[in-house]
Amino acid sequence: MPAHLKYFLSRFLGALATIVVGSFLVFMVMKAAPGDPALTVLGDFATPETIVEFNKKHGLDNPLIIQYLDWFNGVIRFNFGQSLTISSGQDISDLLAYRLPNTITIGIYSIVIATLVSLVLGTAAALNRGKLTDTATTSFSILGVSMPDFWLGYMLILGLSINIGLFPAYGFISPFESISGSLHSGFLPALAIAAPMAAVFSRTLRASLVENLNRDHVIVAKSIGHSYKFIFLHHVFRNSIIPFVVVIGLQVRYLLGGVVIIEKIFGINGIGSLMVEAAFARDYFVVQACAVVFLATVLVINFIVDMICVLLDPRRAS
């Protein structure tokens, strides 16, 4: 379909442009941050001579734009340079390759939990407007958005881990080692991130189900004699999924913010905790790499969401 292809291309080029501009901003912000990489590494041994030598070795004596282009040239090859602090110069790409799967697992896990929970709650609320179920899910939603995720994380550890012992309080098993172990040890952190998202998702789904229930084509379908089940599935639910998917895509940004804190609380070796550790150690190159990975994640997910939406809603392509 040419209309779809055109849409796909324009979105793809848009995403590419965003990564160029975004990575430039990340780079400039890191440059503007206080401190000096040379001092971080050399510490007490820093003399004017060693600093000049260090800067020369890492290309830090070049003009900013050249530094950026060098760095960006590496980024597109998944080469982020070396860490300043970890294992005296470990390749950052190795660090990312080891930690990224953990973060992706937790991220997808929490999206799946939030989506499943909100499908049930949102639909139940929409079908029982104004009744007890509706009020109950609304209250849950307000609770869900109001609870800070780090607080919820500690409460879950206290309740489900320390008191009952259902889930581990700390640590995460990589999905490459054991999938069931990964799902078990990742449940609490995923739930802590999922709760506020589920609240937003179910409110969105409820609102768009209610809106679509009152559409003219629903009455027309009824006047044709279609069953309630058919109308709900094909005229109401089918159309309500579109804004639902859009909101899931938008919440990914929030999810990444949650991951940074939750990984730290639950001791997960992911990108979020790596970024926090690097920031405390003033490891500029690692922080910079993590920021670009987050940026790319948001773009990739938004791109996927856009593609799903255009398949769900033909009006978007034209």
Partner: peptide
């Protein structure tokens, strides 16, 4: 059967 006032709203826009 019934034919309604607003033909645009009478069809499901995604079908």
């Amino acid at each position: 059967a019934m034919i309604f006032q607003d033909p645009v709203g009478s069809f499901n826009p995604v079908k």
